[in-house]
């Protein structure tokens, strides 16, 4: 089995180390690291169970872009004769996995939350239809590609030793190196951190306008909590990135999470599903968020939230 380890700066991403640890628990697991400073990260991969680490430090993989990494992986899969390649979901990894599937005509099962060996066959666990059904999925032929939902496995060191390393430099397809990164801004978090809050009131597009975020703010104040947001409203400029919860934002686990006008997409869910109690208000009775709320209220946030804030204020005095 081969695991794609995503590196950013001088760090291996926890999600991919979790997938590596899981792979190592099933059998022999090797890893591939592609990017600047990859060599220096190999030892770390060993601690999470990699026997062998394939390393690519070519200029083509200096930027966090998927297509040149498809070339690296296709090369390594062939060199190492791997029958299984595992990825932890991320913006980068999803595009690599799907590109590799097309390149190798290989089956890709995505959004898996677990994988096991049943009678020697690899079987993936895949929640479907807003997680209301859990499917067992398999692969026809090899290599088998699997993309795991963020946070599926804990990154626990397996106590492995120093891995064997091999440097690789594949040839790159012309289209693979055509995209260029021309600007980057890592947004600094500002304001109170939502990661430590006991109560989070999060707002989504259902609030209707940036101004209506005051509804979330007032309720958060009344409950003594912080305000969170979905990517849809952050990217639309309604609320700062530092408040974003989900796959590409923060992962939170407050005692109470109140979702206002949030549909409950998987990418949002992975950032808040371990909250103690989840209350959701959404006017669409079929909204996915109701599948994982402890209390789901089908209704209009504009009607309910002002009253709710009043009642909470009155109660807390």
């Amino acid at each position: 089995m081969l695991v794609f380890l995503e590196s950013h700066g001088k760090e291996l991403q926890k999600g991919s180390l979790g997938v590596l640890a899981k792979a190592a628990s099933l059998g022999d697991a090797d890893a591939v690291i592609a990017g600047e400073g990859a060599n220096a990260l190999a030892a770390e991969a060993g601690k999470f169970g990699a026997k062998k680490v394939w390393i690519c430090e070519d200029g083509e993989v200096a930027q966090p872009l998927p297509q040149p990494r498809v070339d690296v992986l296709a090369h390594v899969v062939e060199e190492g004769a791997y029958d299984t390649v595992l990825f932890a979901n991320s913006v980068l990894a999803a595009d690599i996995a799907a590109g590799l599937a097309a390149r190798l005509d290989a089956g890709l099962n995505w959004d898996l939350v677990d994988v096991e060996l049943k009678d020697g066959e690899l079987v993936g666990k895949r929640p479907a239809l807003q997680d209301s059904v859990y499917a067992d999925v398999g692969w026809d032929g090899t290599p088998r590609l699997a993309l795991f939902r963020a946070g599926s496995f804990d990154a626990t060191a397996t106590g492995g030793g120093e891995p064997e390393t091999t440097n690789v430099s594949p040839s790159y397809a012309e289209h693979s190196t055509a995209v260029k990164l021309v600007g980057q801004d890592a947004e600094e978090s500002s304001g109170p951190s939502i990661e430590d809050a006991d109560v989070i009131v999060a707002g989504g597009r259902g609030l209707g306008s940036p101004d209506n975020f005051t509804l979330a703010e007032e309720l958060a104040k009344a409950l003594g909590g912080a305000v969170g947001a979905t990517r849809a409203v952050v990217d639309a400029g309604w609320y700062p990135y530092s408040a974003q919860i989900g796959q590409t934002g923060k992962t939170v686990s407050p005692k109470l999470y109140v979702a206002l006008g949030i549909s409950g997409a998987i990418q949002h869910k992975v950032g808040m599903q371990s909250s103690g109690t989840i209350v959701a208000i959404n006017k669409d009775a079929n909204a996915p968020i109701f599948e994982f709320s402890d209390l789901g209220v089908v209704g209009d946030v504009h009607e309910i939230v002002p009253k709710l804030t009043e009642l909470v204020r009155a109660r807390r005095g």
């Binding site: 009775a285 209390l295 089908v298 009607e303 309910i304 709710l308 009043e310």
Partner: peptide
């Protein structure tokens, strides 16, 4: 025990 209710005008009370 997940619960789901429709707002009949008293949802705020039910949430509290």
């Amino acid at each position: 025990d997940a619960r789901k209710i429709e707002d009949d005008g008293n949802a705020a009370e039910a949430i509290v």
